[in-house]
Write a protein that binds this DNA or RNA. Structure first.
Length: 423
DNA sequence: TCTGGGGTCCTAGGACCC
DNA sequence: TCTGGGGTCCTAGGACCC
């Protein structure tokens, strides 16, 4: 038996927590570079602001209704997310942190599941001020669906347990929900299903699992079985190590020249290397990607990525930056306006499994590199990201992303601590 | 002026092995 | 008349998730 606890409008709710002026107002949170809407308050949803719409496209609507926008503040959201997880882990140690705003809990053996769900909601509301909903069911796919129902239908008061619902009641709910709401059914699959006359959750639940496997894949077969109460997807209490690590950004202002592009690539490489060391791995391959703006088809388009194997797998920022910038030189073409660059590290292995170079020419065999990188990470952990960094990443960094509506780091920086005025 | 970032899994097809 | 059987690995592309 699973419970899925999902925060409502998570990013928007975090912003509202610390800014009383936002209460009751339509609020959207923007993606990096203040590009698209990635979260909406209930008021913004009510105005019909679609998920993922570019912010500049809804300026008229925003002015008309006084929609407030905030830049993404991941320091704040990550910290609030950790607090939610801490509260939930007080209910059971058997849980999977599925995303920044969702966790699956193993609630087998809970005497009164709905009462426990209500207690979770109350505690998170009382201790943090964040609203959550709880969906309970014998499979993860059904728990996701139960959560969706708890969010949409106020009569559930935020907690829906499908396992204790009368079969007829469940059937009529399933017949009223579009198949695209099911976890694992995206818009492409929903389109194809519609052509097969499968439109609702009930339709999909009644489909033949074997046929779904033939027409789609084993993934959809599992979904059908899960909808019928057969658990095919287990709780993953331990997150498996990442197989690849990416760092990529759109630029705050477009970049045309190689030296500036090199700075950005060096910065992204440094960030990826940090994440790599956090996981305790070394990388065996590095990919550099650059591209122009695909939304401006009238401008000359160019995009290229290239992957280079590393003779000796490493986590040394200096080595990785050297290789990344050298790789960039090989794919850079003048005469284009670049919009985005990225670096990916792959073939990740624990350093103990490191294969030495047959020819003894491998980079990253510097015995002092380990302690040096550990010191670098410790300093940046203590004094803030980028306190000590590769000069290759530049000083003024004109390509840095735009974040014009950034809220303070209320909970993670002493300087940004909220001030309460009395009287 | 202006459109995110970071991941995973599955499948098909080709190359290659003995 | 007429050319096997059983595998692995890699890559690209597609779909999905938040």
């Amino acid at each position: 038996m699973f419970a899925l606890v999902d925060c409502n409008n998570f990013y928007a709710s975090c912003e509202k927590l610390f800014d009383p002026k936002l209460a009751g107002r339509p609020l959207v949170v923007l993606s990096n570079n203040d590009g698209c809407v990635v979260a909406r308050s209930a008021e913004a949803k009510a105005l019909g602001v679609p998920m993922g719409v570019p912010w500049f496209k809804i300026q008229a609507l925003a002015r008309e209704h006084g929609i407030v926008a905030r830049s993404s503040n991941y320091a704040l959201y990550a910290d609030m997310s950790n607090r939610v997880v801490e509260i939930l882990s007080g209910f059971t140690p058997c849980m999977e942190v599925y995303s920044i705003d969702e966790s699956f809990l193993d609630v087998r053996g809970f005497a009164d599941r709905v009462a426990h769900g209500q207690l979770m909601r109350q505690r998170i509301a009382h201790w943090l001020g964040l609203p959550v909903c709880v969906g309970i069911a014998p499979t993860k796919t059904l728990a996701k669906l139960a959560n969706h129902i708890a969010k949409k239908d106020p009569c559930f008061e935020g907690v829906c347990d499908l396992a204790q619902m009368a079969p007829e009641a469940r059937a009529s709910l399933f017949a009223a929900i579009e198949v695209g709401e099911v976890w694992g059914v995206g818009c492409r699959t929903a389109e194809q299903l519609a052509r097969m006359n499968i439109h609702t959750v009930a339709d999909l639940a009644h489909a033949d699992p074997q046929a779904m496997r033939r027409c789609f894949s084993v993934v959809l077969e599992r979904t059908v079985r899960e909808l019928n109460g057969t658990a095919c997807i287990a709780l993953e209490e331990m997150a498996p190590p990442k197989q690849q690590i990416m760092a990529s950004r759109s630029f705050g202002q477009w970049v045309e020249d190689l030296p500036t592009l090199k700075e950005a690539v060096a910065a992204y490489t440094s960030r990826a290397a940090e994440k790599l060391r956090q996981q305790g791995c070394v990388a065996g391959a590095l990919t550099v990607m650059i591209r122009t703006n695909p939304f401006k088809p009238e401008a000359p388009q160019y995009q290229r990525s290239v992957t280079v194997p590393l003779t000796c797998p490493t986590d040394d920022t200096r080595v990785l930056v050297r290789i990344a910038t050298r790789t960039l030189e090989g794919i850079f073409k003048a005469g284009f306006v670049y919009q985005k660059a990225g670096v990916m590290l792959s073939e990740l292995t624990p350093p103990t499994a490191r294969q030495a170079s047959l020819f003894g020419d491998g980079e990253g065999e510097d015995a002092r590199a380990g302690p040096l990188m550990a010191t670098l990470d410790a300093i940046n952990q203590r004094w803030g990201r980028g306190t000590v960094r590769s000069l290759a990443a530049g000083v003024t960094q004109p390509w840095q992303m735009r974040r014009e509506q950034l809220s303070p780091a209320y909970t993670t920086s002493w300087d940004d601590l909220p001030v309460v005025h009395g009287g």
